[in-house]
C-alpha cells in the first residue's frame, strides 16, 4: 500500500509541475478523441436525425446493426482498421498505420454508432411531431429538420458526451493502430498500460487521475443536463 500512496503523491507533483511529457500525452489524447468525436458528430447527427424521423418499422434492420456496433469491442474496431491500413490492406498505400490519423479513424468507428444511435433514439421520441408542427407553421424541409435537431438538443448533447467518454477511455483500438509510439501516438490509456508494465506507477496513476477527473467532469455535466432537462444553447 505505501507504494500506491507514494505513487499518488508523485503523480500530483507530476501534474502540478506540468510535466511536459505528461502534458503532451494528455493533449494528444484530447486531440485524437476530440477529432474523432467531431467527425462522428458531423456524420452521426444528420444520419441519426434522418433515421429517427423514419417509421421504426422501416429501419428495424439498420437499428439492429447500429445497436450492435454501439457495443463494438475496441479491439475488434482496432483489428478491422489495422487490416485496412496495414501495408497489404485496402488503404495500405496511404501509409497511415501507426499515425494519429489511424487512431482517429479507429475511434470514429467506435463513436459514430454511439452518436448515430443515441441521436436516432432522441429524435424518435418526438421528432415526427416536431417536424410536422414546424411544417404546419410554414417551415421548409431544411428548417423543419433543423428544428428537430434543436428540439432534441439534450439527447444530442448526451450522444456526443457519451461518445467522447467512450473513445477517450478506450485502449484497444488506439493501441493496435497507433502503436503507442512515444511522442507520436502515445495517449493516456496506452501510456497507462505501458508505465504500469514498467512499474512506473506514479506516471500511470497521474494519467489515471487525469482520466478519472475528465470522466467525472463529463458525467457531472451530463447528469446536470439530463436532470435539469433544459440547456440554453
Amino acid at each position: 500500500m505505501p507504494r500506491l500512496l507514494e505513487g499518488i503523491l508523485e503523480a500530483f507533483t507530476l501534474i502540478i509541475r506540468l510535466d511536459p511529457e505528461l502534458i503532451k500525452i494528455v493533449f494528444l489524447s484530447l486531440r485524437v478523441s476530440g477529432a474523432a468525436i467531431i467527425i462522428s458528430t458531423l456524420l452521426g447527427f444528420p444520419l441519426g436525425t434522418w433515421l429517427g424521423l423514419k417509421p421504426e418499422k422501416k429501419t428495424a434492420l439498420v437499428n439492429k446493426v447500429i445497436y450492435t456496433l454501439m457495443g463494438l469491442p475496441p479491439v475488434v474496431a482496432g483489428l478491422v482498421i489495422y487490416m485496412l491500413l496495414s501495408r497489404m490492406g485496402l488503404l495500405g498505400v496511404l501509409g497511415l498505420l501507426y499515425t494519429p490519423v489511424a487512431m482517429i479513424i479507429a475511434q470514429v468507428t467506435l463513436a459514430l454508432p454511439i452518436v448515430t444511435g443515441l441521436t436516432m433514439v432522441g429524435v424518435r421520441s418526438r421528432g415526427k411531431e416536431v417536424e410536422e408542427t414546424a411544417r404546419s407553421l410554414g417551415a421548409g424541409p431544411l428548417l423543419s429538420a433543423w428544428t428537430v435537431v434543436r428540439e432534441s438538443r439534450i439527447s444530442l448533447l448526451g450522444a456526443v458526451v457519451t461518445g467522447f467518454g467512450r473513445v477517450i477511455a478506450e485502449v484497444g483500438a488506439v493501441m493496435m493502430v497507433g502503436g503507442n509510439i512515444e511522442g507520436h501516438t502515445r495517449v493516456m490509456t496506452t501510456a497507462i498500460v505501458l508505465e504500469t508494465r514498467k512499474g512506473n506507477f506514479e506516471y500511470a496513476i497521474g494519467l489515471g487521475l487525469i482520466l478519472l477527473s475528465l470522466s467525472f467532469v463529463i458525467n457531472a455535466f451530463l447528469y446536470r443536463v439530463q436532470r435539469g432537462g433544459e440547456v440554453h444553447l
Partner: peptide, 30 residues
Amino acid sequence: LQRQMTLVFQKPLLFSTTVRENIAYGLRTR
C-alpha cells in the same frame, strides 16, 4: 400554398423554448 394554412394539432406540441419564441416561429420562417 402550405404556408397559407396551418393546423393546430389535437395535442399541440410547443417547442421547448419561451412562449415568445413559440408564437414567433411562423413569423420567423416567413
